[in-house]
């Protein structure tokens, strides 16, 4: 027995509904640009996609952190370079002060110059980036030193914070990215007395010796300035290493971010060419189905009865 048209139409509607759903899905993938918009699109890929997305966000933040650390390290490097220039000037002043032809008036002038340089060195120790003292250690909001020639060593220390902050690369490796002003400019022994290489102390020693026309003091200050230059060189080397570390970490992060973004794109984004082909195929199938159904001869024998 021939089936009634109702059942035939029901089958047609089910099939055409499936085709239309497929077209809607493919069209959505093309317009959104995403192959995976909801979890059911690729349930087994969800953990990977979200994991990569999270990783990309994490890497992005690490890059931002590294950029900030690099800005501070560069500023520190510049400050140390300036300090080195100032120490060179001090060495010249000391040599001039040690000369037997220099008058006492000139020594006083030289002492004034030394005090000016001491103030510049304090300013360098107080270098700030984005409102934070880069040599402030764990307390970057407090200015490390204040220039005060009348004080012992010519400075007043405001900030004794240690330096434990670390920065982290994308693999979790950490490094301490900075030194404190005390470590660089005001090296001290465990009992708090100035240690060899103490820059502020060397400058103060020179200024005082010049002021007092103390040739022995000038000689001693010259030796201290030389040790201070070594101390400065150590700090410069430290920051050079930090900048290298940051550069390597940044390069690694950039490469990792590119990889992660590529993986996310491969998993999540629509292959437009493939999807467009798929859409064309589905639309053709739909049109063919509708045309075929429309062209069906639905006449029955009743149509031929007189």
């Amino acid at each position: 027995m021939l089936a009634g048209l109702d059942a035939f139409n029901s089958t047609f509607l089910v099939d055409i509904n499936n085709t239309q759903n497929a077209i809607t899905r493919t069209n959505q993938q093309i317009t959104s640009g995403y192959r995976v918009s909801v979890a059911s699109d690729a349930p087994t890929d969800i953990a990977t996609i979200l994991g990569y997305q999270n990783q990309a966000s994490e890497i992005g933040q690490v890059q931002t952190n590294l950029t900030l650390a690099n800005t501070q390290a560069t500023a520190a490097d510049t400050a140390l370079s300036s300090a080195n220039t100032l120490l060179d000037q001090l060495t010249s002043i000391a040599a001039e002060g040690a000369s037997s032809t220099t008058s006492s008036t000139s020594l006083t002038d030289l002492s004034q110059q030394v005090q000016g340089i001491a103030q510049q060195l304090v300013d360098l120790a107080n270098t700030s980036v984005q409102g934070q003292y880069i040599f402030g250690g764990d307390d970057p909001s407090t200015q490390p030193y204040t220039y005060d020639w009348s004080a012992s060593g010519g400075v007043v220390q405001n900030n004794t914070a240690s330096n434990t902050d670390t920065i982290q690369d994308i693999s979790g490796q950490t490094t301490i990215p900075r030194m404190t002003a005390q470590e660089i400019f005001d090296a001290q022994n465990s009992d708090g007395t100035p240690a060899t290489g103490n820059i502020f102390q060397a400058v103060y020693q020179l200024g005082t010796a010049l002021e007092n026309d103390d040739q022995a003091g000038i000689q001693a200050a010259t030796t201290a300035i030389s040790a201070a230059s070594d101390q400065l060189q150590t700090a410069t080397t430290f920051y050079g290493n930090v900048e290298d570390w940051i550069q390597n970490a940044s390069n690694t992060a950039s490469a990792a971010l590119t990889n992660v973004q590529t993986e996310v794109s491969n998993l999540r984004d629509t292959d437009v060419v493939s999807a467009a082909t798929q859409l064309t195929t589905e639309q053709t199938a739909l049109q063919a189905a509708i045309a075929a159904h429309g062209s069906l001869d639905v006449k029955s024998l009743f149509d031929y009865m007189g």
Partner: peptide, 19 residues
């Protein structure tokens, strides 16, 4: 749909047959 189709084959009204 297949089950409904099969049922129609068995018990549905065929206009040709009725004609």
């Amino acid at each position: 749909s297949q089950a409904q189709n099969m049922r129609a084959q068995v018990e549905g009204v065929s206009l040709n047959q009725q004609a």
